[in-house]
Design a protein around this nucleic acid. Structure first.
Lengths: 146, 146
DNA sequence: TGTATTCCTACTTCATTAGTAGTATATACA
DNA sequence: TGTATATACTACTAATGAAGTAGGAATACA
């Protein structure tokens, strides 16, 4: 179980926007250069983040992306869900009809508990971007490579 | 983030062995038939479980597989680790040299916390197979499809 | 010896991830 | 109004890993 680059890159991009919050739109080529991500790939990730409502875009010259909410209102678990998708241990946890034995299934119960626990963790681990951005700015290298 | 069939099938096989514990070796073709898993694929999964020390094998006619430890000594988290591999959010969590910015990295710290939390959950969720097997046997359908 | 079983290795197929590419569309600004 | 600068959209490609198939060798029982 590893994080995809989607999640890692997307998170980095969000961090850049958070740090830049209040200074108007930030261009993807700037983020791409700073974070060493392919611009074209980043465009696609941003489309996901945009449709998920985390960022707004401004087209044309001097355009770019802006956080849709204030940094301190965007949670890690939200971003995680948008980019990585929901945590699913096994199909039958979300959809009983996936398996004919689900009704009596003992381990389905078990996996449900595991899944709930992980989701709660991510909920609890939800850090406000502002905190991270602040910390990153204090750090000499201003680094938050993920 | 979804469980692989490796983990699901492997877990089912372990459950079969747990239920059968004390009755000599159980053949893979029996497990394959009961759990509707390809025998050839199951063979490969069992090789993993064997090298991880969860099962012992007996070759030749009347051979098969036996749990290496008593069911109540095998934990879910162990099996999970053997089949699914360790939980790794990002490479740099386990190996700082993966990323030049790791030393000062703020979000590396964050992902480390996430990872630790998930691992603790799996540790806590560790159920003894005996309990599951007992429950499964009480259930009319004796089902534990994962 | 014959049959049943694990063991070992290689191959195939499919889906997903990661990334590239080209073009259309919108906007600022000279 | 023309041009440079952005995002938007769609299609394609390459690499990787997951899932499964296949064949035969080694082993042990009867």
């Amino acid at each position: 179980m590893k994080l995809s680059t989607r999640t890692r890159y997307g998170f980095r991009a969000i961090m850049e926007l958070a740090e830049d919050y209040g200074h108007g739109p930030l261009q993807l080529n700037v983020i791409a250069k700073r974070q060493d991500i392919s611009l074209k790939y980043l465009e696609q990730l941003m489309a996901v983040l945009k449709s998920a409502g985390f960022v707004r875009s401004v087209r044309g010259a001097k355009g770019g992306y802006i956080l849709a909410k204030a940094p301190n209102q965007i949670k890690l678990s939200d971003i995680f869900n948008a980019l990585e998708g929901p945590i699913v241990t096994v199909e039958c946890v979300g959809d009983k009809s996936q398996c004919s034995r689900a009704v009596d299934c003992v381990t389905r119960e078990l996996w449900m508990q595991v899944q709930d626990a992980i989701e709660k963790v991510l909920e609890l681990m939800t850090l406000h971007l502002q905190e991270l951005a602040d910390k990153a700015q204090k750090s000499k290298m201003s680094s938050y490579q993920i």
